[in-house]
Amino acid sequence: MENIFHKIALSVFSEDENEVTGLIEQALQLNINALDILNTALLPSTKKIFDKFREADFFVPDVILASRAIQAGLFVLKPYIKKSAKKTKTIVMGTVEGDIHDIGKNVVILFLQCHGFEVIDLGVDVTAEKFVASIKEYRPDVVAMSSLLTTTMQEMPNVIEALRKHNLRNSVKVLIGGGPVNQEFALSIGADLYAPNAQATLLALKKIR
């Protein structure tokens, strides 16, 4: 079993979508649990992609190609992953304006849904105004923002300021994440929570009362 997880991870870094999907289909045919494939092969691969990006071992084109391979894998896995029937908190999540990268966000969403969170996916290139409108519409417990680029992460404080202007800041917790983001940046812009990966996001959300 460990061998096929390793092969899936290697195929992600080979940026081979067909190999990723083929190996995942093979694992499913062997009755390997879909959530185990997500947790043991795809989640660690996602983390490693962003680690390599931070360390400048990976560049944006590499991230995009590896991300497409993971997206292809998620597409195969999603029908097999049972979402928890017990709903806990509601989260509005999106990639900030100017940024069209969504691999980290999509992995986190699927992971959280498996653990009973209701997640409203706003997609990519989400403006501050759209975040505000979605909070008014859905009344979530948390608004989560993602960014892959150092240029677009500067949109995060703009969203927080927009929440203040519309008297919404105290009604939601703000969580941020993404390749260039860290705890220091989260504190500097007034975010409540920072999470570098899906597991950390789950732990952070569980602490919210």
Rank of each mutant, 00 (worst) to 15 (best):
R209D: 13
E2S: 07
L149C: 12
K206V: 05
K87M: 13
T95P: 04
L35W: 14
D141C: 01
A56K: 15
I160Y: 11
V96H: 01
L202V: 11
L42T: 02
A41W: 04
K82Q: 14
A191H: 02
L28T: 13
A9R: 15
I135R: 07
S14L: 02
E55P: 10
V126L: 07
G104F: 11
E55S: 15
V174G: 12
A27R: 05
D125V: 05
K47N: 14
S11M: 07
I176Y: 08
A195Q: 06
T150D: 00
S147A: 15
L122T: 00
L193G: 09
A198H: 12
A128E: 10
R164M: 10
T150P: 01
E2P: 05
L65A: 10
K82Y: 03
D51Q: 15
K105C: 03
I4L: 15
I135C: 14
M153T: 08
F117Q: 07
V181R: 11
L38E: 00
P61S: 06
L193P: 08
R139T: 14
E129G: 03
I109Y: 11
F59I: 01
L168E: 13
A191C: 08
L42K: 06
L122G: 08
T151R: 09
S11A: 10
E15K: 13
A204M: 11
T150Q: 06
N197E: 14
I103R: 05
G123E: 06
E15G: 01
L35N: 13
L202T: 03
S134A: 15
S134L: 07
D102W: 04
L35Y: 13
T40M: 14
R68S: 03
K87C: 10
L65P: 00
T152H: 02
T150S: 12
S171C: 00
L77Y: 09
Q183W: 03
R68V: 01
E184R: 11
G94M: 09
S147L: 03
F13I: 04
A66Q: 00
E155L: 02
G116N: 09
A133E: 14
I81K: 10
K86W: 04
G104E: 05
L23S: 05
Q183T: 04
K207P: 08
P196Q: 05
F131S: 06
N182R: 12
E184S: 13
K87Y: 07
V107Y: 12
S147C: 10
A66C: 07
V107A: 04
L38W: 03
E155S: 14
N18R: 15
L168M: 09
K130D: 10
V12H: 03
I49C: 02
D36G: 05
K48I: 07
R169D: 13
V20Q: 10
T46A: 05
F50E: 12
V76F: 13
S171V: 10
L110Q: 12
F131E: 08
L43N: 14
K86P: 08
G104S: 08
T201G: 08
E137C: 09
V108Y: 06
L193R: 06
Q113K: 15
S134K: 02
I24R: 14
D141I: 00
D141Q: 11
